[in-house]
């Protein structure tokens, strides 16, 4: 297993695919978009393709896994957003319930460069992930290096970058989530969701150690909205103070997230 690989840019500006930790990794940079304040925003995508039979993890990995992280070393005037993760799959690995991905997963990120920054500037970051199959887990680690000006020259890939960004989960401010606890149960009430097909939607807790990952949420209609009962995560420390949930309606399958914080 290669633990450290320097990724070099090649023709056309996208970064060469490298394999480590049972995944093939590519970083795609889109064209820089001028902003009103003179800065540039560069949409980017981190593509990870797990080998058949292997999987990686979501931002909330569930039991046992570890989320994929990307830590940048950035020059002055450059900022990179957190990795934005697409909707995960729910899976069982060796008796542990986890959230993650098989095959190809495209994660979005935004790079922002102030007006003073030369786009020939190089940025670098360290990508870490964990890939597991039914029998073992292998950590992956790659050094990513890119020049800000090296955008993809393939139209279809440029479109894929933009489509990936459009498909990322968005907040749903029209929904109001309320949470209360009764013994080891968490009672969720949702208002403003009358137009949502909640009964057929999938839910994923973005907040770690809040809800039992083995249980899928089932919603029922009430006089004021929807209600669901969940089992509290056995490792939650004290009463819940916040909860962030990803909602994935059956059609259209555009994920939104809702958040509750104890007042």
């Amino acid at each position: 297993m290669k633990l450290l690989i320097m990724m070099m840019s090649i023709l056309g500006g996208w970064l060469a695919a490298e394999e480590s930790g049972h995944a093939r990794v590519e970083l795609w940079l889109g064209k820089a978009q001028a902003q009103a304040d003179g800065s540039r925003m560069i949409p980017a995508v981190l593509s990870m393709h797990y080998e058949k039979g292997w999987h990686g993890y979501w931002v909330n990995p569930g039991e046992g896994g570890v989320k994929t992280t990307l830590r940048w070393q950035l020059p002055t005037g450059v900022e990179v957003s957190e990795l934005m993760f697409p909707v995960p799959h729910r899976a069982m690995t060796g008796g542990l319930s986890c959230y993650g991905y098989e095959g190809e997963v495209l994660m979005a990120l935004e790079i922002r460069a102030q007006a003073s920054v030369d786009l020939q500037t190089e940025i670098s970051g360290e990508l870490r992930w964990l890939a597991c199959d039914e029998k073992s887990c292998v950590p992956g680690k790659l050094r990513l290096v890119a020049k800000l000006a090296e955008s993809v020259d393939d139209v279809s890939k440029e479109q894929k970058i933009l489509a990936t960004h459009r498909s990322m989960p968005q907040p749903a401010p029209e929904l109001r989530l309320m949470v209360r606890e009764e013994k080891n149960e968490v009672i969720l009430n949702l208002e403003g969701a009358d137009d949502w097909a909640l009964e057929g939607s999938e839910f994923f807790p973005l907040t770690e150690q809040a809800l039992d990952p083995k249980q899928a949420l089932r919603w029922s209609k009430t006089a004021t909205g929807y209600e669901a009962k969940a089992i509290k995560n056995e490792y939650a420390e004290g009463p819940l103070t916040e909860l962030k949930l990803l909602i994935v309606p059956p059609q259209p399958r555009v994920a939104r997230w809702i958040e509750w914080k104890k007042s």
């Binding site: 039991e63 046992g64 570890v66 690995t93 060796g94 008796g95 542990l96 597991c132 029998k135 073992s136």
Partner: peptide, 8 residues
């Protein structure tokens, strides 16, 4: 919460 590989 324990972390690691699942017990096989």
């Amino acid at each position: 919460e324990p972390y690691g590989c699942s017990v096989k």
